[in-house]
Design a protein around this nucleic acid. Structure first.
Lengths: 335, 335
DNA sequence: CGCTGATGCTGAACCGGTTTAGGAAGGTGC
DNA sequence: GCACCTTCCTAAACCGGTTCAGCATCAGCG
């Protein structure tokens, strides 16, 4: 099949290609009558702009990049990312902007990719996730002048705009729920300690458990390490009566370990998952979880970046506060 | 920061831009000495080709598209897709080809997107997944002449090349394992019945369970429906002694339901998952599963599509046969 | 020595859009 | 009647690459 170009339209409508371009982009410079005629012809021919040509002359790529730099093994299982991507996508596709997805091994490769994308003009901007303290990526993106939106703030994202949820509030609501039930020995199985949002949750957890026995162990977010951490916690001389997990996958693994060790949930151990997913409701008992609308979060993030590209917006944007859904995995501790 | 163009290199090397282009692309037409000088200058200036310009003149987009047309809810949980995408990616990025990912609601939207991508020349080709019988997408792609690789054959993919795994063999190895243990009442919780690979597995299952009590129930691949199906199966007057699940998520849900109903696994119910994942090893008992190297499968698929774009290859390509890993969730049936 | 062919390079056309300088036509003010 | 301003449109330049016809240069050969 032959693709029609702007010249084909111009010929059929009996005008110059410049006029066609103006008409199709809603620019002033053509009469209303001519504009209608041109649009009519464009529709007849089923014309769509050649993306490369437009990108070349208008200096926009029509694409946004997203790099995932967690090891594929830990990624695979987390519903969070797919929800986020779906949300980003939903917003971008309305503006006919594509999402370039790339999975890399580490931050070095990620930064190399930013350089490459920038110098090839492949993307108009990028989403940055899993922010760390003094994150090098922020400096690089600022230096390159590649528009970027940091998903997960606040703080440490320099001049880049960011969208974030209130981790501290979420953590407080979890601990309040547990202490309300009477728990005094609360452990937390955290995700990657170098991530900023992990650090914020850790600080909030420490603050909220002041006066109680509260301690945090770190993992890489994988189910394996979640299981391993749970095993160690429950084997301690004075095991916790409640465990808070930093994601749903580790919580599921934790419940499995408890069952294996003969520790009934919630009778002798309460479990809370950060991030909800169908998984949490499949299990027996169903997991108490902190839910957030990740799809909507993604959509909001995409809109924020688009605003930046349009020259508007910027700065920090706080997302809705996540909500705790109490299910069957939390109960008062055994006396 | 200012991006250098091919003209900047030409000026600094004292040659024409045509010569620079030839040198950088390894085309004949320049002497070895000049080529080295040009490459040297390009490196000094840290030049990278402008993707849009290259796409416009060379009529290649430098990108491959992948559309996911399952509802986001069922997608989120499956490790399979992330593994597949990582594999595709790994191969594509070596050739500096980007992956465009889009999540849509249904096949209609998917086909619309193919039209759009085609007319905008956004991609050089696409991967097609979740093939159905008499799939309309195949006809559309053939009509458009948009290069495509069907992941999951054989059959029903028209003239399009395809990469696939032997579902029938996998199913036979599962049933053989179960009958070898002595099972005579085997149920199967299948995925979406309209998908071709589901149909192939169903046919193979029927064939392999000939002479036994074997039956299949359909789901949408989600954990919820997997749980629901399990509940119904176990409530029957003569429940199965083994259940084969079409993915890991449903198998996990099934085990949870069994626990809830007080049916011990594997003593009174054996469980096998099609597709392995860390999830299967976290559970207690660990799940017997059919494992395949999805990452490698993705990489192979990407290579196959690249071959097609290069004018080579085509036709059917069979992937390695998946392998059954026996763990703790299968055992002889209760007497 | 003149012819042939290969080699190495230049200059220009081209891909399909966007943008801008400028010109024709028509209306307005004095 | 003439200067001046809008409105609507055309022609051409431009984005940054690739490709190709054609021109010099030089070696090989009869």
């Amino acid at each position: 099949m032959k693709r029609p170009t702007i010249m084909d339209i111009a010929r059929r409508a009996g005008v110059s290609k410049g006029a066609v371009s103006m008409a199709l982009n809603g620019q002033p410079g053509v009469s209303e009558a001519t504009r209608r005629r041109i649009l009519q012809v464009a529709q007849e021919l089923d014309w769509h702009p050649n993306n490369a040509a437009r990108a070349l002359s208008a200096a926009r790529a029509g694409a946004i990049g997203l790099v995932l730099a967690r090891p594929a093994r830990t990624l695979g299982v987390e519903p969070f990312f797919f929800q986020l991507i779906s949300g980003l996508q939903a917003e971008l596709s309305e503006r006919r902007i594509a999402l370039l997805l790339q999975v890399v091994d580490d931050h070095v490769a990620e930064m190399e990719l930013y350089r490459q994308w920038w110098s090839e003009r492949r993307v108009d901007g990028v989403f940055v996730i899993d922010l760390r303290a003094q994150d090098e990526r922020v400096r690089l993106l600022e230096k390159l002048g590649l528009p970027a939106l940091v998903i997960g703030g606040p703080g440490h994202h320099g001049e880049l705009p960011s969208v974030w949820a209130d981790d501290a509030h979420g953590m407080r609501s979890i601990v309040t729920h547990l202490t309300g039930l009477g728990h005094k020995r609360i452990a937390r199985v955290a995700g990657l300690p170098e991530l900023l949002h992990t650090q914020r949750r850790t600080a909030a957890f420490r603050e909220a458990t002041r006066g109680l026995a509260g301690w945090t162990v770190s993992t890489d977010y994988s189910g394996e390490q979640g299981a391993e951490a749970t095993r160690r916690l429950l084997a301690a001389p004075e095991p916790p009566t409640a465990i808070v997990y930093d994601n749903d996958v580790m919580a599921v693994a934790g419940v499995a370990v408890a069952a294996e060790l003969g520790v009934p949930v919630p009778e002798r151990l309460s479990v809370v998952a950060w991030d909800d997913s169908p998984l949490c409701q499949l299990l027996h008992p169903q997991l108490t979880a902190l839910t957030r609308d990740t799809f909507a979060f993604g959509a909001r993030a995409a809109r924020a970046l688009l605003d930046v590209l349009d020259g508007a917006g910027g700065g920090d944007l706080e997302d809705h506060v996540p909500e705790l859904v109490a299910r069957e995995s939390t109960a008062p501790p055994a006396p």
